[in-house]
Nucleic acid binder design. Sequence first.
DNA 1: CGTAGACCCTGCGCGC
DNA 2: TGCGCGCAGGGTCTAC
Length: 284
Amino acid sequence: MPELPEVETVCRSLRPHLDKRTVVRVDVRAPALREPLDGDAMRRAALQRPIVAVARRAKYLLMRFGPSAGRDATPGGEDALALHLGMSGRLTLVDGDAPYAPHEHLALHLDDGRRLRLVDPRRFGSAFALRWTEQAQDRHFAHLGVEPLTDAFDGPYLARRAAGRRTAVKTFLMDARIVVGVGNIYASEALWRAGVHPTRAAGRIGQARWQRLADAVRATLDQAITEGGTTLNDFTDGEGNAGYFQVSLAVYGREGAPCTCCDGTIRRIVQLNRSTFYCPGCQR
DNA sequence: CGTAGACCCTGCGCGC
DNA sequence: TGCGCGCAGGGTCTAC
């Protein structure tokens, strides 16, 4: 479900509701996600402590907790939660006494009577506690590349990392060790916007085109965030609102349809078992 | 090291 | 209507 724009949308929609709230109960209802949920560690991090930050790193949503009143740091030192939505995860605020939903794995009950629920049918998501200040060293984050919406992400950076690489540029853009947050939808969209063919070898792309690609990735993600993400099936933000970037999709899911930019027809191919959509007229 | 492929799951829409 | 199949927004692990 979520790539960077969707996680950012959830993050922004939840922030005003979570800011300065306190978690009063942590319910692990179904621990079987990609990694088994560790309720004790999450309680140490979150219980009876005010939420002081809601942020995003890559496709993770991060919640930081301040000190609990009159108490020292918890034994494990955890003071943050990381939540990943995988393919099918949804994170929404509901009334605290609302019935539990199918596949509701985790419920954080807040001091205002509501609860933050993590629903994830396919169980590719994850949730774990960590130390905020040691985030970069955490094994989930240590290998991650640059954020695409920062100044570190530009043409020269991509050109340097791609040197000598024979992998297809679409695969390269989806590699989180290079740049985070670009998933299967936005990789196709950004390549179309930049006019680059998805199967082209990453090491055989010139400086100018890398700059075009960096700009295209940034512009695509920015626009998707502005439009509240892409709702293909059932994505919503933390308040249950659907996104509308799907209306703006130029190639993704449009196999056989006319290109909006030339006389061509959108094609679908498979790369590493994932669908890629592109316009053979616009992309070389 | 870089690369390609399998795999982890459930649910949906489609064609028969 | 029921059933089997292909497909789905992610990440990790393995073998070569």
